[in-house]
């Protein structure tokens, strides 16, 4: 139980960490100042969630590891995030599409987690769900605006969707960890969120005049259990962990 809970918390924490890291790369480079500021807010929320999830993961593990230890001192195979969040930012459209596909899941997942039998998880989810609700509103609006905007913006968004949608489906594959946690009433079964997700996404895409591609997540192995990652993750870590690795054990 403790092992499964640790694993499940890492999945939440690592998704938030890696996506927060990716979104933070935009700071100073967004298409317009208002978007620059908004993206930074999203990244800040995600990094805040990371802190809460990983701190609790460390406590559940019981080996005295802090949120920082988990973020900065694990190697790629120990990360439990889905592949979607580690993909490069691409153009702004790809970033926003990835954000929407994740936000929509994150909101449903967090709302379900507010019902968790683990009160600590329920409390964190309560706070994070409010943030996620705003993220969805914002990323959804931008996906719609760009999908329905000009010919060029429409084409770019369709391309982003075609690339990213198969990755989004990884969010719904389940394994023993999910089963055990769902059984215990601590985490929702990802499969139980899928219908609501597909309905919401379909509505958004329709408004955005985008076509849902025929797709499934075809990779064998998933980031959720660390058996699969893209090569991008290692490069994220070489940046993110540089100081902690080059000057071990220092106070910053």
């Amino acid at each position: 139980m403790a092992d499964a809970k640790f694993e499940a918390l890492l999945r939440l924490g690592d998704n938030a960490l890696i996506l927060g890291h990716r979104v933070s790369e935009w700071c100073g480079h967004a298409p317009v100042l208002e978007e620059d500021i908004a993206l930074a807010n999203t990244a800040l929320d995600l990094l805040g969630q990371t802190n809460l999830w990983l701190e609790y993961a460390g406590e559940v593990e019981g080996k005295g590891r802090s949120a920082d230890d988990l973020a900065f001192l694990r190697d790629a195979w120990d990360f439990r995030n889905v592949l979607l969040v580690e993909l490069p930012n691409g153009d702004f459209g790809q970033t926003i599409m990835r954000q929407y596909l994740f936000d929509q899941f994150n909101l449903l997942n967090l709302r379900a987690l507010t019902e968790s039998k683990d009160t600590r998880i329920a409390e964190i989810a309560e706070k994070a769900a409010k943030e996620a609700a705003y993220h969805v509103e914002r990323s959804r609006g931008t996906v719609v605006g760009l999908g329905d905007g000009t010919q060029e913006s429409h084409a770019r968004m369709q391309e982003a969707l075609n690339l990213l949608y198969p990755y989004a489906l990884e969010l719904f594959i389940t394994d023993e960890v999910d089963d055990e946690m769902a059984e215990a009433g601590v985490f929702p079964d990802p499969k139980s969120l899928e219908d609501a997700y597909l309905v919401a996404v379909a509505a958004t895409l329709q408004e955005a005049t985008l076509d849902l591609p025929e797709a499934h997540f075809g990779h064998r192995g998933s980031g959720k259990d660390g058996r699969m990652h893209t090569e991008h993750l290692g490069h994220i870590l070489t940046q993110m962990q540089w100081l902690q690795r080059a000057y071990p054990g220092q106070t910053w």
Partner: peptide
């Protein structure tokens, strides 16, 4: 001025430092 500091957001040494720096550089955009 966002750029020289933004240069270290992805390399900040702790989660807290990362958030503080990001919030700061965001303020500059503001």
């Amino acid at each position: 001025g966002q750029l020289p500091e933004g240069n270290w957001i992805t390399r900040a040494p702790t989660l807290e430092r990362k958030m503080i720096l990001l919030a700061k550089v965001q303020d500059e955009a503001g």
